[in-house]
Design a protein around this nucleic acid. Structure first.
Lengths: 99, 99
DNA sequence: AAGATACATCGGGTTTTCCCGATAAACCAA
DNA sequence: TTGGTTTATCGGGAAAACCCGATGTATCTT
């Protein structure tokens, strides 16, 4: 994934919010009962909070995953998404150095 | 200017390159005789290096200026652009904290 | 004043992004 | 197996971004 593509992923209000929400899932997704630390937050919870259609949010999550900024785990009928903090760390270092 | 607009400005190959070129003008714009440190690099030099039309590059520079990441100085018939390092510093701090 | 140079702005064709509804696919429960 | 739930994918209309050529504006030179 190239730097421009990462900035493209970040240049959308909802996608940026999702990434920030996932920094502290317990705070932003109090409804979910499963432990966040394992796998993350499921699509439905994110969709409800984002107030966009299911298809749009699913598309956004898949796009974010392609950048490497988040990862998914399928458990039963749910897909859980969480941040890939290593990727964020790398991105920040790149930005601090190159930008 | 909000964060999303800044990321939008960064999510273009040429604009990102321009910002990086302006980090070290003496290195990337050897043709220009005026001292870079005063005012920056003029549009023509940037356009030649970017290999896009004059109108496109002018548009890009104006967009970048609206984000606050660069500043312009008009001297005679030339417009010189340079980075606003304070804005970059602020952006990096925001990214490091919020992202 | 007239022409040349440097840059900005305008109008627009093409591509990409945004976001939706409909449908498909995977899984679970009865 | 049938029906319900959750997510992914598909098709597409509307809006935005990309990048161009043409034209306008400011400045300099002669």
């Amino acid at each position: 994934m190239d730097q421009v593509d990462i900035f493209k992923a970040l240049s959308n209000k909802t996608r940026l919010l999702i990434l920030k929400w996932l920094k502290d899932p317990a705070l932003h997704f109090p409804e979910q009962e499963r432990d966040f630390s394992e796998a993350g937050v499921c699509v439905g919870q994110i969709q409800k909070k984002a107030r966009l259609t299911q298809s749009t949010v699913s598309e956004y999550l898949s796009l974010l995953q392609r950048t490497g900024l988040i990862e998914s785990t399928r458990i039963g009928q749910w897909t859980y998404y969480k941040r890939n903090e290593a990727a964020f760390q790398l991105l920040k270092e790149q930005i601090n150095k190159e930008l």
